[in-house]
Amino acid sequence: MTATLAPPTDVRPKKKRRGAGGEGGAGRASWPVKISVLLICFLWIVPALGVIVTSFRTVDDSNSSGWWEVFLHPFKYIPQLTTANYTDAIHQAGIGTALINSLAIALPATFIPILIAAFAAYAFTFMRFPGRDTLFILIVSMLVIPNYVAFVPILQLYSQLHLAGTFPAAWLAHIGFGMSLAIFILRNYMSTLPKEVIESAKIDGASHFTTFWRLILPMSTPALAAFAIFQFLWTWNDLLVALVFIGPGENQPVTIAVNNLLGQQGTGWELVTAGGILSMIIPVIVFLSMQRFFVRGLTAGSVKG
């Protein structure tokens, strides 16, 4: 059994060759190309730079001059930069609590559906049963159904059960909304795993449960990670589901908290920008550290198509 256990670390062929890039290929970019890429990156960074800079400026400075003045008159403005906005945002504007709430919503909403979906994906990939293809087609068609369909009925249901405004209200909703994508991604990945692994496990007398837990789940790590990142970013960044099922209040996630700051007349730029930056730190870290899995998840799903 050991011989077949080597996990296929990457099922997609490694594509080091890069002939399709165009005339020169890698590294031999002409100056116009280099300059245009630089310009595009500049266009992408500049808006974000404004928020970062302003989050460190005093209220008076942000209201009386553009953030770029910091770069034009560094001697005047740089000494006035402060981190007070961040402490104010965390303590007075409630961003601190909201960040914890976001974690409290996103973590369970990310990890609980994975196991449920993995079991279903296993059954769809490695078991034969009547109705399998029809049920999977149902999953595929559910992928595109807007989750808006759920809001009115589920909200009515939640108010009967007194669930509205609580964390479980959001967890359950995210589990339901993410399920079809999770099954789809995991099943697509599992069907690329070598069938011999399953066969030999069966011959060795392993039950489905053991095969799933010991073999298939560890081998599916890339797909599990890809979905986990998707779902985490989705639930962390979500505004709509949170607004509908949790709403503003003590359990509000950071998206609602920052949106409230944006909407309040008279809230200065300093809190909005600091709050905005605080809301972005965790997803950006997750994204950058797991980018490899994320991209692989994206491409594995689509490049084949």
């Binding site: 974000a48 970013l233 962390w236 505004l239 998206t255 994204f287």
Partner: peptide, 18 residues
């Protein structure tokens, strides 16, 4: 160029309001 995909529309709004 890929990075803005990681942030929420609310976060992006704090960027673009500016």
């Amino acid at each position: 160029i890929f990075l803005p995909m990681a942030i929420s529309a609310v976060g992006a709004a704090t960027v673009w309001r500016f």
